[in-house]
């Protein structure tokens, strides 16, 4: 019925009221549309143009069109490829971690047997509002090999802790631990989704003799799949763009031994410290296309596995 009326209204010539409404609506959107134009579309166009040039702001007058050279260079530049590897390695650990850990914490906090749940929820959220730079400065000291509390505690129970941020084999994991501090948003989203699962469904499953694990996998998981989907998309995009904290930890050299030289750190270094803004623009566009493809792919796949309770 609803589709029928909307079809009819679309077929009918636009009334003056409708035209007025459309005009008003677009006027309301005007601030954002202007922003879209000046903060996204134009800059994107300009950086696309830069990516085909050898643009260097110090020698702006020598700008020259060089075709696809910058894009070809990405695939022949050992350091760029390495930075892609560093980023991918981080993604590989970070994504599952940041999808699953907040869910586990949320399950713990929504468990009715746990007292003072509100306090725990507050405490798990707390670090999420700390500036990333402050958090990184704290972690660098807490994970120091000699004087850091983590290794002192491990030493106390007879384990010799690694060098964490200074060990090529550990630094990625240590960065994931650092990012674990910012699980607040994910946890809250999971908590809300878990609380929306109708209790009757559990009761019914219990009557059918389903144990807690079966109940979780057959009822809870499908019902919170939309949140899992969002977590997954955000984790992937976040990992692809990982930048700020890594640069504070490893500097522009990506200590230790280039192991924190993430793709974006490399991009920043190319553009801002080496003045190769043409190349940096190409790096940015390559990332943009990749991230766009991943996002579109995920959204396309969601029909297959993401469950939405209502149509709207």
């Amino acid at each position: 019925m609803a589709t029928l009326t909307s079809r009819i209204s679309k077929a009918l010539p636009k009334s003056r009221a409708q035209k007025r409404e459309a005009r008003l609506g677009l006027t309301m959107l005007a601030p954002w549309l202007v922003g879209l134009l000046f903060l996204w579309i134009l800059p994107m166009g300009i950086s696309l143009y830069f990516s085909f040039t050898n643009y260097d702001p110090v020698k702006a007058d020598q700008i020259k069109f060089i075709g696809f050279d910058n894009f070809v260079r990405i695939f022949t530049d050992e350091v760029a490829i390495w930075s892609g590897f560093v980023t991918f390695r981080f993604m590989f650990i970070y994504v599952p971690f940041s999808v699953i850990m907040p869910l586990l914490i949320a399950l713990m906090i929504t468990n009715k047997t746990l007292p003072i749940r509100g306090v725990f929820r507050f405490l798990f959220y707390l670090p999420s509002i700390i500036p990333g730079i402050a958090a990184t400065l704290i972690f660098l000291r807490v994970f120091n090999v000699q004087t850091g509390w983590v290794n002192r505690i491990l030493g106390g129970i007879g384990i010799e802790g690694p060098s964490w941020f200074w060990d090529a084999n550990w630094v990625t994991i240590t960065l994931v631990i650092l990012e674990f501090w910012f699980i607040g948003a994910g946890m809250i989203q999971y908590i809300a989704a878990l609380q929306n699962v109708p209790l009757e469904m559990y009761e019914a499953a219990k009557v059918d003799g389903a144990g807690p694990f079966r109940r979780f996998f057959q009822i809870t998981l499908p019902l919170i799949s939309s949140v899992i989907f969002y977590r997954l998309v955000f984790a992937l995009i976040f990992a692809m763009q990982y930048f700020g904290n890594a640069m504070l930890v490893g500097g522009l050299s990506g200590n230790p031994d280039r192991n924190t030289l993430f793709y974006n750190v490399y991009l920043y270094r190319a553009g801002w410290t080496l003045n190769e803004m043409g190349y940096a623009s190409a790096l940015a566009w390559f990332l943009f296309i990749l991230a766009g493809a991943v996002t579109i792919g995920l959204f396309a796949s969601q029909k297959k596995w993401v469950f939405y309770a209502t149509g709207d």
């Binding site: 959107l29 954002w32 549309l33 879209l36 903060l39 996204w40 134009l42 800059p43 994107m44 300009i46 950086s47 830069f50 702001p57 998309v233 995009i237 692809m240 763009q241 974006n264 991009l267 553009g271 803004m277 940096a280 623009s281 940015a284 566009w285 990332l287 943009f288 991230a291 766009g292 996002t295």
Partner: peptide
């Protein structure tokens, strides 16, 4: 337009950094 709004949340802003900084 709503789809574009959503996209601006997901897509890497790095692609706008250099022109914006120069601008």
């Amino acid at each position: 337009l709503f789809w574009v709004l959503t996209a601006t949340v997901f897509l890497p802003q790095q692609v706008t950094w250099i022109p914006l900084a120069i601008f």
